[in-house]
Design a protein around this nucleic acid. Sequence first.
DNA 1: ACCAAGTATATGAGAGTTCAAGTAAACTGC
DNA 2: GCAGTTTACTTGAACTCTCATATACTTGGT
Lengths: 149, 149
Amino acid sequence: MTRWLDADEQHAWRSFLAATQLIYEALDRQLQRDAGMPHTYYMILVALSEAPARSMRMSELAARAQSSQSRLSHAVARLEERGWVRRERCPSDRRGNVAVLTDEGFAALAAAAPGHVEEVRRSLFDVLTPEQVRDLDEICSAVRNTLER
Amino acid sequence: MTRWLDADEQHAWRSFLAATQLIYEALDRQLQRDAGMPHTYYMILVALSEAPARSMRMSELAARAQSSQSRLSHAVARLEERGWVRRERCPSDRRGNVAVLTDEGFAALAAAAPGHVEEVRRSLFDVLTPEQVRDLDEICSAVRNTLER
DNA sequence: ACCAAGTATATGAGAGTTCAAGTAAACTGC
DNA sequence: GCAGTTTACTTGAACTCTCATATACTTGGT
């Protein structure tokens, strides 16, 4: 009944698990060490920094930063304590909240970005050929098309 | 100074983050729901099940299951509470511990495996062509060769 | 206007992870 | 043969994440 993985698939799968974990660990370690935040927080700050008025509804932000609503809510609470983000009541829909990136938050992101990009290069792009980057992009698109609702 | 990502790299990177997170979330949800364990625990059980006598030194196990020593130590403590793993003092090196997969642990793994493999197929292999699987394998090998150790 | 159902977010508890110490045993050189 | 270092593993605290639940507002019928 069960369609087990054949030898090639096994190898690819384990290699995938190893490689992706190595990358995520490298990212998290670098960001934690040099910027005092986990990668998930970094993604939140990035998403906010790219939004008009550096602000976004919580649910929209959760989608952009690939976070669950609950995770985002907790994370923004922490970011708020640090003064990097501020929450405002949404005027048009009083259920809603808008997260706003503060200047301090933007500065923290700007300070963190170069080291982070360097780490992204070191752990992924520097080890791949341009063709492999294209291959990877297509592979990831295929996965997203299936798993993203 | 900073070598920022160009548009293609940006796209590939964000697609990579999205796709890998989707896969990990799918894995974790399925295992948690159907087998009551996170994916990291599953990897520990798999590693043990493949070892001679279904047992391994803690540090060796950490390496095989791609876990930090600390994480493994906590995880094995939990698995021990469930009766899935047992710890024995290592006779040759009295600093060491040997983790042993119990019959209950093996049974839990055997029960979890089919659903897990199904999820792995659904989220990765079913959406890729055989050539993409080969590409992915090579990409991951390249990453591992650089980041491992 | 009212009430049921749906939406947006928060919150608390429980579980897992990390980091920094801590313990204990094994090497290493003199 | 014993100080000093390294190795193997554990522990506790702080933090993050998940899941279930709660709260507050909105919307759609009637």
